[in-house]
Amino acid sequence: MTKTESNIILFSITLCWASSYIFIKNLPPELSAFAYLTMTAGLASIILLIVFFKRLRDFNSKILLRSAAMAAILCVNLIFEKMGIAAIPASTASFIASLNIVIVPLLLLFFRKRPSRNNLLGILIILSGLALSSGVKPGQPLEAGMLYMLSACFLMAVYIICTDRFTKDHDPLLLGVGQMFFTAILSFILWSLQEPKTFLLVNYSNTLLANIFMLAFFSKAYAYIMLMYSQKYASPLSVTVIASTEPIVTMVLAVLIPGTFGVNESFTIIKLAGAVLIAAGAVCAGTDFLNKKEEKPLAGNSASL
């Protein structure tokens, strides 16, 4: 897979995740996050099990263990995210959630992978764009909600790096299927702890089922299998940088489909400036015009896009 090909896949995943808000908005507000995760991941697992039935015999204990680890990280990430969103304003939560663009390169330093000059400049530009578009205000006191969101963000960065390492040695398809299966089981356990009646309490309707199916298909089954494949060939930084363009995609979708993201979504000059900065940062991080002046790094010592 070429760099362009993996970038195209990563962008399509970003598009799927950004447009998933259209369907999430149609879900009843009383549906808990764990119920949502159980139903979407469960349905996605069934779809994947049917489609890739013949490949299931290739599972081994190592793949199962790694899939379970990735699912566990995702579930704990969701718990922290849920607690964080409940405690702090949405704009602050959204900004902190996007901070993995900083945490991923920091964690990569532990694996002796340093970002290039272009990566660093790009990250700075993206960060300022995210700050503008999310509307976060400087000088806010540190609250428990912020720490929860920061923990969620840290776990997401760990997830990206784990996926990167696991997919290099194991079949990305099996990892994706296994992860989805374990996510469904773990989230069901969490859901039953939160609400023992689980499925019996849900008010089923055609709209709910159709939206759950769409989310299961696109934001889970499609997006995670594609993520596994693209991460086998792309660096964790590429994933983070391209995922950081999600606010732009959301903004474009909001303009194309008015009312999609609720009545509170407004299109301002500041948001537009933020989007331009994010796009410019992503382009900067994805090119190497500054790196040409550097000494050529040793193989495996750089995390350029």
Partner: peptide, 15 residues
């Protein structure tokens, strides 16, 4: 363009 092309890429990749 946004869904078909990535699927084509994955289906025709080395894996």
């Amino acid at each position: 363009l946004f869904l078909g092309l990535p699927v084509l890429i994955v289906l025709t990749c080395d894996d």
